[in-house]
Simulated scan of single mutants.
Amino acid sequence: MLRFALKCKDIQIRDPFVLPLEEEGKYYLFGSTDKNIWGPGTGFDAYVSDDLSNWEGPHPVFRPPADFFADANFWAPEVYAYAGRYYMFATFRRKDNNRLGTAVLASDRPLGPFEPLSEGPVTPEAWSSLDGSLIIDDAGDPWMVFCHEWQQIGDGEVCAVRLAPDLSRAEGEPATLFRASEAPWTTPFVSPRFPDTVNYVTDGPYLFRVDDGELYMLWASFIDNTYALGVAKSESGGILGPWTHQPEALYRDDGGHGMVFRLFDGRRALAIHAPNRTPEERPLFLEIAERDGRMAIAGPLSD
């Protein structure tokens, strides 16, 4: 039996990702859990709940080995049950070239320990890339959708690349799905580091299908320098799109980096962090539903 000691307000976490295991009746919560995620990386922790309100943890699920390729910016772990094991897609800042990249780790258990599977990041070595997310296409082949970072290219991109069947490496070249400025709801991000450039941010893409087979994507950006979450839909039903953006942001109250999961009662839930300020960020769970061909928030789930 789980011993619950924490509420959502007690958990500092960014980029929340929920893995529901119905056979256990438990929700596993992963995310960026370093107290200062902008500095040295120590690893990832996870929490466990049966109701999304009362949590047990933290459980250390990943600590880097001595020869790990990164030592800073441990971000956005996403954990998937796939082919009999659990796989973590997470972003790290490389030691060799100081660029971000998404690597794949694996474990036999949802609470780890997770160990490196890929030889460093599976994103391109010359790119600064982040927030890789796993999606399986209609043929059963794995792909990763990720961001080509705005700090490198100005107008951030969401890209996709096919993965090897064992998820250990990319196969082929990435395809650009869209750029941040193409969405009608985004505005330029004014950064004190780049005051003289026009920047558009892409952050945290996550793909999911609804009951009729339509393929949607959540992704985050900014509206007047406030963090926000948008939705796009694949017009072809496939990963490569083309992608059409909902005209208005799904959530624009300084929260985002979302993902969607099924509650044990069958409803669909959205997980985001809010506000987008360290150390105030907390997990927030909302009910989400498709209405007239668009995704909409139906109401809160957590206290």
Rank of each mutant, 00 (worst) to 15 (best):
residue 196 D to S: 08
residue 232 A to F: 00
residue 216 Y to C: 09
residue 260 V to A: 10
residue 183 A to Q: 12
residue 224 D to L: 00
residue 176 T to D: 08
residue 182 E to H: 07
residue 252 R to G: 14
residue 200 Y to L: 01
residue 191 S to L: 00
residue 202 T to L: 09
residue 231 V to D: 13
residue 270 L to Q: 08
residue 233 K to C: 12
residue 254 D to Q: 05
residue 232 A to G: 15
residue 241 G to M: 14
residue 182 E to A: 12
residue 261 F to S: 02
residue 257 H to A: 01
residue 175 A to L: 14
residue 200 Y to D: 00
residue 267 R to S: 12
residue 204 G to V: 04
residue 244 T to H: 12
residue 183 A to D: 12
residue 179 R to V: 04
residue 275 P to S: 00
residue 231 V to W: 01
residue 192 P to V: 02
residue 186 T to P: 03
residue 280 E to N: 08
residue 262 R to S: 14
residue 230 G to P: 04
residue 213 G to H: 03
residue 258 G to T: 01
residue 251 Y to D: 04
residue 202 T to Y: 05
residue 247 P to N: 13
residue 185 W to F: 15
residue 200 Y to V: 01
residue 275 P to M: 01
residue 209 R to C: 05
residue 244 T to G: 08
residue 209 R to V: 00
residue 272 I to W: 09
residue 185 W to T: 02
residue 207 L to E: 10
residue 264 F to Q: 03
residue 209 R to N: 07
residue 216 Y to M: 11
residue 180 A to R: 00
residue 264 F to G: 04
residue 182 E to M: 06
residue 276 N to Y: 13
residue 255 G to K: 00
residue 272 I to S: 05
residue 206 Y to L: 02
residue 252 R to L: 13
residue 188 P to H: 01
residue 258 G to F: 03
residue 249 A to V: 09
residue 221 S to N: 14
residue 258 G to K: 01
residue 233 K to E: 13
residue 275 P to T: 00
residue 170 A to D: 09
residue 232 A to M: 01
residue 193 R to L: 13
residue 174 P to E: 00
residue 240 L to S: 06
residue 198 V to T: 15
residue 190 V to E: 15
residue 193 R to I: 05
residue 274 A to C: 11
residue 210 V to S: 08
residue 173 E to N: 05
residue 218 L to Q: 07
residue 218 L to K: 01
residue 200 Y to Q: 00
residue 191 S to Y: 00
residue 251 Y to I: 14
residue 220 A to N: 08
residue 250 L to K: 06
residue 243 W to C: 08
residue 196 D to P: 01
residue 228 A to C: 13
residue 206 Y to S: 12
residue 226 T to L: 13
residue 189 F to N: 07
residue 180 A to L: 04
residue 199 N to D: 13
residue 255 G to T: 02
residue 174 P to M: 01
residue 233 K to H: 11
residue 188 P to S: 05
residue 272 I to V: 14
residue 224 D to N: 15
residue 209 R to L: 10
residue 181 S to H: 09
residue 227 Y to P: 08
residue 239 I to E: 10
residue 251 Y to K: 04
residue 189 F to C: 06
residue 198 V to H: 01
residue 173 E to T: 06
residue 188 P to G: 04
residue 228 A to H: 02
residue 247 P to E: 15
residue 171 E to I: 15
residue 238 G to H: 15
